[in-house]
Each structure stands twice: as structure tokens, then as C-alpha cells.
Amino acid sequence: MNIQYFDTYDAMSLAAAQMVYTSVQARPDLLLCAATGNSPTGLYLQLQTLKAEEKGDFSKLRVVKLDEWGGLSSEHPATCEYYLQHYLIKPLGIAKARYFGFNADTQAPEQECTRMQAQLAAIGPIDCCILGMGVNGHIGLNEPAEKLVDHCHMAQLAASTLNHTMVNGLESKPRYGMTLGMQDILAARHLILIVVGAGKEKATRQLTAGKITNQYPATHLWAHPRVDCLIVG
């Protein structure tokens, strides 16, 4: 794991964007797995700037959604769908046929996870996976557990996860999550882990210690041969 520390969020976001940009330049139809939330927003804004300045063509890029809150309408502003449409898909001009993700509107989440697993098998492997880390060390919605799940699955959400800024103000919180599993993530060719935000000090110490434990799922990234971990602070 290549760990880099940054004094500011903007500096970290620029460094992450340069990694993605370089990869897209080398492979225009790259399959990008995109996380949501506060951590990667600056990265996506930097990619928007590159496109606006005509320094990058992202039209051939393929995008797969990392995870989704369950039980919310796909048009709800708290969903991962809404976020990605706003920060990545529409600004970069990604065609509908080049975007893949969990359907937030599904009434059959287990079947939706099965569908996504089959779709990932058809379009993968993931070339570059953007990840954030939760205060409890989760990545995607792979929560701490005795045994982590390998592939796409419904996730029971930890209390700390339900305090995420995307959903903590909702009167009706998500009832579950849908997420790529740990092996789906580790099968990606390149992982970019962004660590930023209050309350993550303990999880960050666990991560940087280099000991793999299911109680901090992000530590499993040590088993991957190519991880860039970008930490602010």
C-alpha cells in the first residue's frame, strides 16, 4: 500500500484526479468503480475541471456504482444514484449504456444484488476503484463483521453508517444497503482509497498499522498489490 499524506483536501483531490486522468489517458474505456460521499467529491470536481478545460475526454469511460442505500427513491437527493449523476455521470458526459449500478428503486434487493454480480462479471474486471473509508473502517457498505461477504450483497447498516452525512438528516433512514463485496473490490486492478473526515482517527490508525482484520474492513486492502491510500491530515 502506497500511503501519502496531504495537508489539504484540495491537494489530495488533485493528486487523486491525476491518477484517474493518467489511467483514462492510457485506456479511454477504463472501468471506474465510483464511491460517493464527501471523500471523493473533490476528485470528481477536478475531473470536471479537466473536461471543461478540454484536457480530458471521458466519453468512453465506463462507470460502475460501488454501493447504494436501500429503500430510497432513486431520485432522492440522499441516494448514491443522485450523487453520481450530479458529480460524475452528467458532468463527464457518460452515456447511459456506459453506466452500471444498483437500482435504488428495486423492490427485490437480493435479486438486484444477483443482477449486479452478473453484470460485473460481464463488464469487469474493474480497472480503477475509488473508495472512501467510514468511521468504523468500512469500505463500500462492507461493514465490520465476523465474516465479510465476497460478492454483491444486501448489507445491514451499522449505527455509525446511518450517521453518514448523506442520510443522517433523514426522518426515514435507509433500511439496508447494497454493495459490491470485498472480493469484487480486491479484484480491481488499481485501488484509490481516500481517507478524510472527522472521527476516523482510530480507523486510520488501524489501517496504517498494516494488520488485516474483519473488524476494520479497509485493512483488507493490504492484500492487494496496487493500492494508493491518500490521507488528509
Results as ranks from 00 to 15, higher is better:
Gly199Pro: 11
Met178Tyr: 13
Leu180Cys: 02
Gln206Cys: 12
Gly181His: 15
Ala218Arg: 02
Ala187Pro: 11
Ile192Arg: 13
Gln183Lys: 11
Thr179Arg: 11
Thr208Lys: 05
Gln183Met: 14
Val196Thr: 12
Ala223Trp: 04
Leu186Lys: 12
Glu201Trp: 12
Pro217Ala: 07
Leu191Gln: 05
Leu193Ser: 03
Gly197Ser: 09
Gly210Glu: 06
Leu207Cys: 02
Ala218Gly: 08
Ala209Trp: 14
Gln183Pro: 07
Gly177Tyr: 04
Pro217Ser: 08
Arg175Tyr: 15
Arg205His: 15
Val196His: 09
Gly177Thr: 12
Thr204Ile: 10
Ile192Ala: 07
Val227Arg: 04
Thr204Gln: 14
Thr219Arg: 03
Tyr216Thr: 14
Leu191Lys: 06
Trp222His: 15
Leu207Gly: 09
Thr213Phe: 10
Asp184Ala: 05
Gly199Met: 09
Ile185Phe: 15
Ile231Cys: 00
Ala209Pro: 04
Glu201Ile: 13
Ile231Lys: 01
Thr213His: 08
Ile231Trp: 04
His190Gly: 03
Tyr216Glu: 08
Leu180Val: 01
Lys202Leu: 14
His224Thr: 02
Arg205Met: 12
Gly199Lys: 07
Met182Asn: 00
Gly181Thr: 13
Gly177Trp: 01
Asp228Arg: 15
His224Ser: 03
Gly210Thr: 09
Glu201Leu: 15
Ile194Asp: 04
Ile192Trp: 14
Pro225Tyr: 07
Ile192His: 12
Val227Asp: 00
Leu186Phe: 14
Thr208Cys: 01
Ile192Lys: 15
His220Trp: 09
Val196Met: 02
Ile185Pro: 12
Ile231Arg: 00
